[in-house]
Amino acid sequence: MNDPFDLRLSRRALLRHLAVAAGATAALPLPGRAALASSGGAPAGTASKAALQYQDQPRGTSACANCANFIAGEDARAPGHCIIVAGDISPRGWCLAYAGNG
Rank of each mutant, 00 (worst) to 15 (best):
L18V: 06
R92K: 13
A19C: 12
P91T: 00
A68I: 07
D6E: 10
A78T: 15
G80W: 03
R11A: 04
A22P: 01
A34T: 13
F5V: 03
A24G: 15
A47F: 12
S48R: 08
P79E: 13
A65D: 08
V85N: 01
A22F: 08
L96M: 12
S62H: 07
C67V: 08
P29K: 04
L9A: 06
R59F: 14
H81K: 14
N69C: 04
C67D: 07
Y98H: 09
D75F: 00
L14Q: 03
D6V: 05
G102N: 13
A50G: 10
T46D: 06
A72S: 13
G40D: 06
R92Y: 08
G45P: 03
A27E: 05
R16G: 03
A24R: 05
P29L: 04
P43D: 03
L52S: 04
P31G: 02
N101A: 14
D6M: 05
P58Q: 04
L18F: 03
A37N: 11
A68T: 12
L96D: 14
F70C: 11
R77Y: 06
Y54P: 01
C82K: 02
N66Q: 10
G45Y: 08
A24K: 02
L7C: 04
A34G: 05
A99Q: 15
L30S: 10
L9I: 04
A13R: 14
A27S: 12
F5C: 06
I71A: 08
G40T: 05
L7Y: 03
Q53S: 14
A86R: 15
A76N: 10
P91C: 02
C67S: 12
D56G: 02
R59V: 12
G73A: 00
A51K: 07
P43R: 10
V85M: 09
I83M: 14
G100Y: 04
N69G: 00
L30V: 15
R77H: 11
A42R: 13
R33A: 12
R8V: 08
S39W: 11
G60K: 03
L28M: 13
L15F: 07
Q55E: 11
A72R: 15
N69A: 08
D75K: 01
I83H: 09
G45D: 05
N2T: 12
S38H: 08
M1N: 11
S62G: 01
N2D: 13
I83P: 00
N101S: 11
A26S: 12
R33W: 07
G87R: 07
A42E: 07
S38I: 11
L96V: 09
G60V: 01
R8Y: 01
D88S: 15
E74H: 06
L14V: 00
T61F: 11
P91Q: 01
A51Y: 05
A63H: 14
L14T: 01
Q57R: 15
A51R: 09
A68N: 11
P29C: 05
G93W: 06
